[in-house]
């Protein structure tokens, strides 16, 4: 019993220490990035390359996911509200669900796997093959050459992808609610969408997308940059990056809803 208690304490202690050391190193890492902002001649062109890869490279899968999300939302809403409520509510519900939650969160979770894993694996491999050391030994900053372009691209491109995801999600939701059980008319859908819509909702969607974009690029870059111990270390860093980025998204989602939505 005593041994078990001690073990739990040891586990909790070790976990706390590891977490605190990660928080400290991530803070130091972020300060390095802020310093690197001054070297804009280096990171701006590279950020465009990365933004192209994040944006164009992810567009198809984001649109596909958003289309299915809109369709499922419409079908399930139709199933639940078939007789009990005015049908125009469905329009409002679909738009609000897509814009406030499904668009940003699903896109971010998708990209945490696609982009987060890629960033962590790329930087992790560069670390274990001494490419990052080589860059430093040439008197160049890894922050401005490698990290900042990725973080800027992730932070700025996620809101752009979310706009596309929102648009396709809503269109798909409208299509399936018009052709599904409810046979919703365009007028009902638009009336419901406008009735519940507040312009702030769109801003909220984009603001939280930027935070999600920061999380899915910063956390994996940090994990990749801190990789140790060869191929196994790269694998471990990649897994940890995707898990941490996904958890960060969920945490930020709750936190930003609390802070940014009035009367939440």
């Amino acid at each position: 019993m005593t041994t078990a208690t001690l073990d739990v304490r040891r586990i909790v202690g070790r976990f706390s220490l590891t977490s605190m050391s990660h928080v400290g190193r991530l803070a130091y890492f972020s300060v390095e990035l802020v310093r690197a902002l001054a070297e804009w001649r280096i990171w701006v062109p590279r950020a465009f390359e990365q933004a192209h890869q994040v944006g164009v490279g992810s567009l198809f899968i984001v649109l596909l996911t958003a289309g299915f999300a809109g369709a499922v939302t419409a079908l399930q809403t139709g199933y639940q509200f078939e007789t009990s409520l005015p049908v125009y509510i469905v329009g409002g519900l679909i738009v609000q669900t897509i814009v406030l939650e499904l668009g940003p969160v699903m896109t971010a979770l998708l990209l945490s796997g696609r982009i987060g894993a890629r960033y962590a694996a790329e930087l992790g491999t560069m670390r274990v093959t001494e490419q990052i050391d080589a860059l430093e030994s040439l008197g160049r900053s890894p922050a401005s050459h490698l990290i900042l372009p990725r973080v800027v691209a992730g932070t700025l491109m996620l809101p752009v992808l979310v706009i596309f995801a929102d648009a396709i999600g809503i269109l798909s939701g409208y299509w399936f609610s018009a052709t599904g059980v409810l046979q919703l008319t365009s007028a009902d859908f638009i009336y419901g969408a406008q009735y519940f819509f507040r312009p702030w909702d769109l801003w909220y969607s984009l603001i939280k997308s930027m935070f999600f974009g920061l999380a899915i690029s910063l956390v994996p870059c940090y994990m990749g940059f801190s990789t140790r111990q060869g191929a196994e270390g790269v694998g471990r860093a990649t897994t940890a990056a995707v898990v941490s980025a996904s958890v960060s998204i969920l945490f930020l989602d709750a936190l930003l809803a609390q802070i940014l939505l009035p009367n939440a």
């Binding site: 560069m126 093959t129 001494e130 490419q131 050391d133 080589a134 860059l135 030994s137």
Partner: peptide, 9 residues
């Protein structure tokens, strides 16, 4: 600095 395995990008 010449790295053991080249460390080429």
């Amino acid at each position: 600095y010449v790295f053991q395995f080249g460390a080429l990008f």
